[in-house]
Simulated assay, not measured.
Amino acid sequence: MKRLLLILVLGLFLPAGAQAACYLEYKAKKDAPLRLHYGVMQIDDGGCPGANRAQNIAERRLDGTGWTLLTVVGLSEQPPSDQKRANAGEYFLRY
């Protein structure tokens, strides 16, 4: 009985800890003067969301910062490469 209870308890908690983060790559702009940037956001949402939800998350995070989302470039559960980190510069995991 104790084993069954232990298995049930572990079954409830292990999946939550095993959920992967999702990395969202995006492009954004600011007007007057026009400025563009490429960035990477981390989403801890139990994996990568669908395209519409990803766009909504990025728009919401950028809202109020003066940046406007242009496009979601990609989604990945793999950590970004060093090249992507370098390309994002100060916008790597900023929002």
Rank of each mutant, 00 (worst) to 15 (best):
A86N: 11
G11V: 10
V40T: 10
D63E: 13
K30R: 14
R60W: 06
L93W: 00
L14C: 13
P33G: 03
Y26H: 12
A58L: 05
V72N: 03
A16Q: 13
L4S: 12
L4G: 08
L75G: 00
D82L: 13
L4H: 09
L6C: 04
I57A: 03
G64P: 02
W67E: 13
Q55M: 07
A51S: 05
R61A: 09
F13G: 14
N52V: 12
Y91C: 00
G46F: 01
Q19Y: 09
G17P: 04
L36K: 09
P15R: 01
A18W: 06
W67F: 13
G39P: 02
G74D: 05
L34F: 12
L62N: 04
G66A: 01
K27N: 13
A58R: 01
L14K: 04
A16V: 14
A32Y: 11
L24A: 03
C48N: 03
C48A: 06
K29A: 15
N56T: 10
V73Q: 11
K30N: 02
R94D: 09
L75N: 01
L70F: 04
Q83M: 12
L36C: 03
S81Y: 00
G66T: 02
Q42F: 02
L12S: 03
M1E: 15
I7G: 04
Y95H: 07
H37M: 14
Y26S: 06
A18Y: 08
D82N: 06
L12N: 04
R85I: 13
K27Y: 11
I57L: 08
A16N: 10
I43G: 15
G64T: 09
K2P: 07
K2W: 10
I43L: 15
A88C: 08
H37I: 08
R3M: 13
P49R: 04
R35G: 06
R35F: 12
G46T: 01
G46A: 04
T65L: 06
K30Q: 15
Y26K: 08
G89A: 08
I57D: 04
A86P: 02
V40W: 08
I57K: 06
G50M: 06
Y91G: 01
K29S: 15
L8N: 10
Y23V: 00
L6S: 01
P79C: 02
A18S: 06
Q78I: 08
R35N: 13
D82R: 03
C48D: 00
E90M: 14
A88N: 07
Q19K: 11
A32I: 07
R53L: 14
G74S: 11
L14S: 11
M41H: 03
L5E: 05
F92H: 08
V73H: 10
Y23F: 14
Q19M: 11
L62T: 05
L70P: 07
P49M: 10
F92T: 10
R61Q: 15
A16D: 10
Y91A: 12
I57C: 00
R61M: 09
T68F: 12
N87W: 05
R3H: 09
A88P: 04
G46Q: 01
P79Q: 08
G47A: 07
W67N: 10
M1K: 11
V73G: 07
V72F: 04
A20H: 12
K30Y: 02
D44S: 15
N52L: 15
C22I: 13
Q83G: 14
K30T: 01
L62Y: 02
Y38A: 12
E77K: 11
D63H: 07
G11T: 05
Q55I: 02
E90Y: 11
A21E: 14
Y23K: 01
